[in-house]
Structure formats: structure tokens, C-alpha cells
Simulated assay, not measured.
Amino acid sequence: MSATTSDTSLYRPNVGLALFSGAGHVFLGRRINGRGAFQWQMPQGGVDEGEDAADAALRELEEEVGLSAKLVEVMEETEDWLTYEFPAEIRRRMPGPYIGQRQKWFALRFKGSDSDIRLDKHTPEFDAWRWAHLSETPGLIVPFKRPVYEEVARRFARWTNET
């Protein structure tokens, strides 16, 4: 996916996490205080200044899902950055210069049990979670992120047990 503009400084560096269960399903969290449809998403978060994307992915996993790095195996990282732009109404509410996000995506295999998942370990971003088929995730995400989720579903399909 390519950005509308070639100026990558206008896109906040971010990571996305496709956390796969042993059965080949992917983790989805429901956004706290979400409004309307499309509140389910895979974990994601910003890359701090000077932070490596892989380190950011494991930090976000711990912050959003409550899982330590020892409970996952990193299977794949996208070579390129996938981008999306914020809709105008979101851009107006956000501070800073960003018009969207550029994301490195990681496929992670979960080696723990469901009881290891702790949405309340830090400031919660999700109020519920579930396992889902990766192929259904584009239909559950907010529309402006849908092309990225379609691309992630295509690229990481080999990590599922879907046929």
C-alpha cells in the first residue's frame, strides 16, 4: 500500500499485531468507549522515538493484551509499511501534524492460554476480546483502516488454518 503523499513524516509510525492462537485464529479486542459499528480491531500502537518496530510490537502486546514476549513467537514482520489516512473528522480532533499512520505488521503465535490474556494490566484500551478468523477482520474494522486489514489478511493467511 502506498501513501497518498510521499512525505512519510506526515504518517505516525505505528505497529500492528496479528496474534494467532494455536488453532490459527486471530485476537480481536473491542475498543473501550467505541461508538457505532466496527469497534473490533487487532492491537496496534505507536513507535516511540528511537524505538525499534519489533520492540514496539512487544511493548504494545504487553500494554494492550497483558502478554509478555515469552508467551509469543514472532513469525513474520512486514518488510514495508502499510499506510492509512485519518478521516477529516478524526484529524480535526487529533493534535500534531499527522494525516494518518504507517504501520509495520507482525504475525505472532500465542504460546500461552486464554487465561494469560489480561486487558486490565495497564490502562485498558479494550473492554472485551475474542478469537476470530483473519479473513473476517476487514469487515469488523472501521472503514478507513479496511484496506490495511485486507492486505494483512492476504499477507498473513498462511498463519491461519482457514481454507
Rank of each mutant, 00 (worst) to 15 (best):
L28T: 01
M75P: 09
Y11F: 02
A54F: 07
L28S: 03
A23S: 14
T83S: 08
I141Q: 12
N33W: 04
L71R: 09
T5V: 12
L58S: 11
P95M: 01
G96P: 00
E150V: 04
A132K: 13
T78E: 09
A56E: 14
E60P: 05
A54H: 05
A153I: 07
T5Y: 01
E162L: 03
G45H: 12
D52V: 15
F144N: 04
V47G: 09
E162Y: 10
A88G: 04
G100K: 00
A18N: 06
V26S: 12
G16D: 01
F38L: 15
M75G: 05
G16P: 13
E63H: 09
T83Y: 11
A37Q: 15
G50Y: 05
V26R: 06
T123E: 11
W105E: 09
A18Y: 03
G112N: 00
L119K: 08
R130V: 04
S9G: 01
T8R: 15
L19Y: 00
M75H: 07
V142P: 07
G16C: 10
L17D: 15
V15E: 08
A57H: 09
T83K: 04
A69I: 04
A56T: 05
P13G: 03
R155P: 13
A157V: 08
G139P: 04
R35W: 11
G96E: 00
D48F: 08
Q39H: 03
A54W: 00
S2P: 12
R155S: 09
R91W: 00
A3C: 15
I117K: 01
I117P: 02
I141W: 12
M1S: 10
V148W: 04
A53K: 04
P87D: 02
P124F: 14
R92H: 07
A56Y: 13
L19C: 04
N33D: 15
T123I: 11
S6V: 13
T163N: 06
D127F: 09
G29C: 06
Q44S: 15
T123D: 15
E51R: 06
L58W: 03
Q101M: 05
L134C: 03
A3P: 11
V26F: 02
L119I: 10
G29A: 05
D48P: 06
M42F: 01
R146M: 10
P95V: 04
V72P: 01
A53E: 14
E125T: 14
R102T: 00
S2G: 10
A88D: 09
H122Y: 06
L82S: 03
M75R: 07
Y84H: 01
F126W: 06
A53R: 11
L134M: 04
V26A: 08
A128G: 15
A3Y: 10
S115R: 05
F20S: 09
P97Q: 02
K111I: 02
V65R: 12
E51G: 10
F126G: 07
S2T: 11
F106I: 02
P13D: 05
V26E: 15
R30G: 10
D52F: 08
P97G: 00
E51M: 12
D116F: 10
G36P: 09
M94E: 00
P143C: 12
K121S: 14
T163R: 12
